[in-house]
């Protein structure tokens, strides 16, 4: 059930790549509860992977384990054959459900992660990032006065600033309206087009349909299946995924929490 689909079968690219990502026997428990339970998974470096599942399934925990924000109770995570250390994490970036912005202006939020660049290069990069996120007009505004959609686009722009190999997104549009969600999905597509691996957690089926190349379906801390998106939406192999999709169809696909 955990075998990766053919299209996404991976080979070692060797050298510097963070891929394939190989997870085996991964577990995370807290106070006796197995929140992530014996998860094994292989991901390539090209696709947009959507981790889909109901609330409380362990999707966000799984993502935090992959990024190294949490230490697993058991199991191994190898990025391109290397254990997850600071050097690996430095080539990844994460966007949180609630945009975590510094109490500074929009541009200062970007400058914060571009400290290593010389001044002119840094300013040029900030201009470019803000333009791509359609935030040019609010460059000097305090970040926390921006609208929810603008805040999340700024958070994504900041995550993108360092040209990460992997971008994790944890329900990036969970609390946004459809127009803001659309803008965020466009931004994610643009970042993917630059060659960044996208790993996105969502419980929104519509978003999964729009963005996923492959779907990892998670329920009760376990991976129930991992399929190319086209196959997954046509034919779910697991009862849990089928129930999830059918349940959603009953109540409509709109899920704006």
């Amino acid at each position: 059930m955990l075998k990766p689909p053919e299209e996404h079968a991976t080979v070692y690219s060797g050298g510097d790549s963070l891929f394939p990502l190989e997870v085996s026997g991964l577990a995370f428990s807290d106070r006796g509860r197995n929140l992530v339970d014996n998860v094994s998974l292989t991901l390539d470096g090209r696709s947009r992977t959507v981790i889909l599942g109901p609330n409380g399934a362990g999707k966000s925990l799984l993502m935090r384990l992959l990024h190294g924000l949490l230490q697993p109770t058991a199991g191994t995570i190898l990025w391109g054959g290397r254990p997850l250390d600071a050097a690996v994490r430095a080539r990844q970036a994460m966007v949180f459900q609630r945009p975590t912005l510094l109490r500074r202006s929009a541009e200062e939020n970007l400058r914060f992660v571009l400290g290593h660049l010389p001044r002119t290069a840094r300013d040029a990069r900030i201009t470019e990032l803000l333009a791509d996120a359609k935030l040019t007009d609010i460059r000097t505004m305090p970040a926390r006065l921006l609208s929810g959609g603008e805040q999340q686009r700024l958070a994504i722009a900041r995550a993108r600033a360092a040209d990460p190999d992997v971008l994790f997104l944890d329900e990036p549009s969970a609390s946004l309206d459809p127009a803001s969600t659309h803008a965020i999905e466009e931004l994610i597509r643009a970042i993917h087009a630059e060659g960044t691996k996208i790993i996105l957690v969502t419980h929104d089926l519509g978003q999964a349909r729009r963005l996923a190349d492959d779907v990892v379906f998670v329920s009760r801390g376990r991976i129930m299946e991992h399929q190319p998106a086209a196959d997954f939406f046509l034919n779910q192999r697991s009862d849990a995924a089928r129930a999830y999709i059918e349940g959603r169809l009953d109540i409509g696909t709109v899920d704006q929490s």
Partner: peptide
């Protein structure tokens, strides 16, 4: 508490 995960993500 608010910045913790961001700071750790940024290393």
């Amino acid at each position: 508490g608010e910045y913790d995960e961001l700071f750790r993500s940024l290393g």
